[in-house]
Design a protein around this nucleic acid. Sequence first.
DNA 1: TGCCAGGAATTGC
DNA 2: GCAATTCATGGC
Length: 282
Amino acid sequence: MHIQVDLAYKYDFDLALARLSGDPVNAVDRGKRLVRVPMDEGNIIAVRGIGTTEKPSFSIEGVLDEYQLDEIRSIFHMDASLEDVTRHFVDTDLAPIFAEHAGTPLVKSFSLYGTLMRSIVHQQLNMSFANTLTMRFVEAFGTEEAGVWRYPSPHRIATLDSAVLRNMQFSTRKADYMIGVSKAIAEGSLDLKKLKQLPDEEVIQVLTAYRGIGPWTAQNFLLFGLGRPNLFPFADIGLQNALQQLWGLDRKPTKEEIVARFPDWAPYLSYAALYLWRSIEP
DNA sequence: TGCCAGGAATTGC
DNA sequence: GCAATTCATGGC
């Protein structure tokens, strides 16, 4: 079955697909304007762009109920207006990049656990190598169905010896982080779904209590895992580079210089981050 | 070749 | 408390 979803605001699906395809785990076909989403319930839902940026329309394909349709709309940010966000930044220093990439939605990750594992892998590694490692992790321990990869269960990773990951070119430290967090989830002491109900600060407090999860990883989880609108990972080197370029600095901006802009950008700090990242992507 | 990469923990003062 | 150091390896 397929359901058509039309949006009344500007939405650039091709940009969304471009960003999603940055992670090779995602089953994106930019030519067919299609992405297939492995749902937590086990089924796979395809989202196909059948409209334009100015007149966005989507075909949601697969067996799904009302709950899953809501989930898809939430993941792809088809449930709130991007116009409000864009309008908010018109009078700020970020106006040019919001104009250039207008309609870029905040698309969430397809898996909460995957977001966490991927974030740990990406800590202090270049994107290319980090993506290679993430894909290697998923292909070794995850599952695949009809060309769509799914992150492994935390239970599977919890039982691994760190040497196994070490042999796959993960650092011993990263391996310990990933296994440790997976154990907490497998044992039930860490429930990622429950974090949905907590405010940002409490989520950060809960997550950073675990070895390997610092502020950047926790903020990343809030932003791309839970889709929270007001997070800015100021420790992110990519964001620092984007701001250095935007502001024409010959050095990286200081934390103080970045935080000084927050009053203007709030309550949409996540979108400031999203569009800044977008501004330095090819 | 040496520095950097979508950090975090540990150590040193 | 905060800065410096360590981790670990591919990319350029």
